[in-house]
Write a protein that binds this DNA or RNA. Sequence first.
DNA 1: ACAAAAGTGTTGGTGTTACACCCATGG
DNA 2: CCATGGGTGTAACACCAACACTTTTGT
Lengths: 247, 247
Amino acid sequence: MKVNSTIDHSNNKSEKLADFKVGVDNVIFSVDTEYNRVLVLLRKRDVEPFNNHWSLPGTLVRQGESLTDAAYRTLAEKIQVDNLYLEQLYSFGNPGRDPRENPNSFGVRYLSVSYFALVRYKEAKIIAKSDKNISWYKVNEIPSLAFDHDEILNYGWNRLKNKLQYSPIAFDVLPPEFTLNEVYQLYCTILGEHFSDYSNFRSRLLKLGFLLDTKVKVSRGAGRPASLYKFDSKAFAPLKDKPLLFI
Amino acid sequence: MKVNSTIDHSNNKSEKLADFKVGVDNVIFSVDTEYNRVLVLLRKRDVEPFNNHWSLPGTLVRQGESLTDAAYRTLAEKIQVDNLYLEQLYSFGNPGRDPRENPNSFGVRYLSVSYFALVRYKEAKIIAKSDKNISWYKVNEIPSLAFDHDEILNYGWNRLKNKLQYSPIAFDVLPPEFTLNEVYQLYCTILGEHFSDYSNFRSRLLKLGFLLDTKVKVSRGAGRPASLYKFDSKAFAPLKDKPLLFI
DNA sequence: ACAAAAGTGTTGGTGTTACACCCATGG
DNA sequence: CCATGGGTGTAACACCAACACTTTTGT
C-alpha cells in the first residue's frame, strides 16, 4: 500500500480525505484576587446549534492569519487587556464533535485548536459591557457548555494548575508591583488553600532570585506594611528553560 | 463588529476564512536499550516539495477518521508494534509552513496535528525492511528535516524527557518483565547519565508500590543475578491521576 | 579442579537540603 | 493585626560503603 504523506497531493484515491474547518477556542482565565476566585470568560451563543448555550469564545481562522493571531483576535474582541499569558492547549478534531457535520456530506469536519489564556482580572474590561452574552463565570460554577467545550475547559483548568507550579505565569497577571502575600493568595486561589506553607513559600520564591524588593511599603488595612516586589525579567532570563518549581 | 464563532457559518464576509488541509505528523521514539540510545523513526520523502529530504512520518486525515486513528494508521503503516504509548503533541498551522501554499490562492493552508509515540525497539519491525526510505535515526544525529519538522521533533523530544519524569510511560515500552537496572538504563539513556543515583532510584521506584517482584532471577553475563519485576497496573490505578515523580 | 579476582545486583549508612509546622519580632 | 524572619523536627536526596551472588581468570 502506498504511503500517504502529510504533504502529499498524491493521496490514495480509494480513501477520501476529510475536509476541515479550523477554528480556535479560548479558555480565558482570570483571578479575582479580591474575592479569591478563579474566573473563566464565557459567551452565550446566539445561533444554532446550541443556541442560548454558553460556550468558550472562539473564532474561525482567516486567510493569512496564524492560529495564535486568531486566538489573540478572539480575546481582543471580548476583553481589553494589556498583559496576558497565552499558549496553545490541545486540538480537538474527532468526527462528530460538531452537530453541523452533515452525515450525508461526510467529509466536513470542525477542528478546534484550543488556547489557554491568563489575564489580569482588574485590567480586563469586557468590551461590550451591556452585552449580557459575555460574562465571567467562577470556575467551580460553570454551566453545561456547548459542543465539547466542557472537556476543553477541563483541559485548560488542569493546564493552569500545572503551569503555575513550574512557570512564572503568575507574574504576567499580577500588577507590576505586588506584595509576596498577593502572590501567595493567587497560588492559594488556584491550587487550593493547603498547597504550601506561607513562610516556606516566601523563602523559596525569594531564593529563586528574580523578585526585586522595591523597599516601598504598603498597608492593606491593619497589620505591618508589606514590601512591594517587582518581577525582574533580566534575572529570570537564565532560568527560563530550566525546570523550576515555584511551590 | 459581529463576533465570529468557531462553529458559525455566519462568518463575516469581509474577512475570508482560511481553507485547511489537516494532517498528522508522528514523532516516534524508541529506546535501544542494548546500545543505550534514543531513536526516532524518519521517512525520506519521494515527492516535491522537499523531495529526498527526511521527514516525520505523517498522513492526511481521512473522512470519518479521528485524529488519533490517523496517527495510529501512520504508525502501523511503517512499523509493527503491539505495545506503545501515544499522545497528541501540538498543532502547527501558521501560514507559510508548507511551500505548496500558493500565494495566489491565499486561503489554502496545511495544518499539522503532531503526535508523540514511544514504542518498544526490539518489537518494532519496520514493515518494508527493504525500504531504504524508512529508518531509525539516533536522536542526537538527526539530519535537517523537511518543512518545520525539526521544530516538531524538538517539541517531541522535550515532551519525552518531561513525560518520563512524572508518568509511567517507560513501562509501556519495557518488556513485560524487566530488571530494575533495565529501568534505570532506560532513564539514563533518555535523561542523561547523572539524573539520579541508582540506589535512590531503586528505593523510590519500589516505594511507589506498583512494581511486583517475581522472585525470578536472571543473570546477564557476570555478576549477581537480578530480580525480574512486573508493572502492576492494578496497584498503579489509584495513582493514575496523582502528581507522581519517578526520578 | 580449585581458589582468587572481578563484575554486577542489592542493601544500608551519613551528611546535606528541603520542607511542614511553629514561634518571635517589627511595624 | 499582619508581614517578616528564624528555629526545629522530619523526610528526601546525593554520595558513599558494604555485602551477596555470579562469572571469569590463574595456577
